[in-house]
Amino acid sequence: MAEIPLLSVRNLVVEFPSRRGTLRAIDDVSFDIAEGEVLGMVGESGAGKSLTGAAIIGLLEPPGRIAGGEILLRGERIDNLAAEPMRRIRGKRIGMVFQDPLTSLNPLYTVAEQLIETIRTHISCTERVARERAIALLDRVGIPAARRRIDDYPHHFSGGMRQRVVIALALAAEPDLVIADEPTTALDVSVQAQIIDVLKEICAERGASVMLITHDMGVIAETADRVAVLYAGRLAEIGPVRDVIQAAEHPYTQGLMGSIPTLTQTDTRLVQIPGSMPRLDAIPKGCPFNPRCPHVMDRCRHDRPVLIARGSKREVACWLYEAVREEVHHG
């Protein structure tokens, strides 16, 4: 019997009722995050990666709602909790880092006030102890002269420093899981690398798992242990980062990897996937990728591919590999 994963998402379905009928933004997505693991969630805009994060922390914006499946934190369901218990889980057990640091910090309170409040909401301790913890945290995320700067307001900090404060805030209550949604997208290239390093190190130090949501394969490559690739609200491929990046199996992941220009490759043409991701109201029948897929077969247009295990750690939702498996069976 395997140990219970920290977070387990089972057959998650998120729907948006709209005037043209109900739109399925996330359709039957399942994955686990183990203790201390960094799971990257990658996909293009509209793939449902941010929605998955929002569904886990119970912050889906209405009219969006979880229409099926379950989300388990250490084996306990958290997808059907009332607002109040869910609020206690957010912050205490699941920390959050968003793309825009300005939206996660209240501009009217000093960094000290926000950090101390978060610490004391979730951990019982005196104001003085909380303040010391807060200073230590800021110091750890790389804010120079933390003891002096803790009483500054968020607007006194630069973009990169603000994101460090947000990371400190997310980790203030020592959560088991940190969900980081595009934490570096709003930052400059030279600052991005610093933030990713801080996030990765501090979570590793505290044994917190990370769900890193991003469109940037480079960030995933540098940070994650495993990666889940989403396409049109469905899981295309999930597996260890090295395997997926160096030998992608799903044709979408292959196309995605080929389309990224790199510093080492030169004058070759970029691989391009024709067309664009379908809109939610026009997701093709069968495999959602079939109209763009270079290996499309008849079956792909009718049957939705299931996740097929490839080795012990990897799963791919593509009929190409069903054939391989059958051959193996016959042989």
Partner: peptide, 8 residues
Amino acid sequence: SQTEQSQT
């Protein structure tokens, strides 16, 4: 070299 089918 290629044409994008306009999905609209």
